[in-house]
């Protein structure tokens, strides 16, 4: 264990908007903390709520879902469907005693590199303040 606790945060982000936005933040060298690991899917609509549950079960301290702005989805409406699932996920998290701020959905377009950096900063800050996921201790 390191002397300073660092959260484990999973990001699942869409290829067309948020992944491109994250790439743009790189191109512009906008610095943000390295406490996030991104998995790319074609659309946030692909994200099965069970993926998120699996991440928390595996000990994730936070999960970030990021897609296109409403109306900008490359597949017309996948982000709407993902957003609707967020309500379900948040209520399930609350019911099992997790703070629902550990899961967040944001909308970052391909031209919003600075916004992506801001989102990561904020998610890392929020999850760090919340501390380690209680599920981790529950597991072992």
């Amino acid at each position: 264990m390191a002397e300073e606790w660092k959260p484990k945060i999973l990001a699942i982000i869409c290829n067309w908007c948020s992944y491109a936005g994250a790439d743009l933040a790189g191109g512009a060298r906008i610095q943000y903390p390295p406490d996030i690991r991104a998995i790319r899917v074609m659309c946030t609509g692909r994200i099965d709520p069970l993926f998120i549950m699996k991440a928390f079960q595996d000990g994730a301290d936070g999960v970030l879902i990021s897609g296109c702005h409403f109306g900008d989805c490359h597949y017309l409406e996948g982000n709407f469907k993902a957003a609707k699932r967020m309500f379900l996920i948040k209520s399930v998290l609350k019911n099992i005693g997790l703070d629902d701020r550990r899961i967040r959905m944001t909308f970052v377009s391909a031209s919003e590199g600075a916004k992506w950096a801001g989102v990561v900063n904020d998610v890392v800050k929020t999850v760090t303040e919340l501390g380690p996921s209680p599920l981790k201790e529950f597991e072992k």
Binding site: V41, F51, K81
Partner: peptide
Amino acid sequence: GCGTCGGFCPGGAIHMQHFTTPQIV
């Protein structure tokens, strides 16, 4: 290939090529 169907199928019956459930898990 957006995978919106695969993200919701209650039975996990949809195989989204290149972004399969086993791959993402």
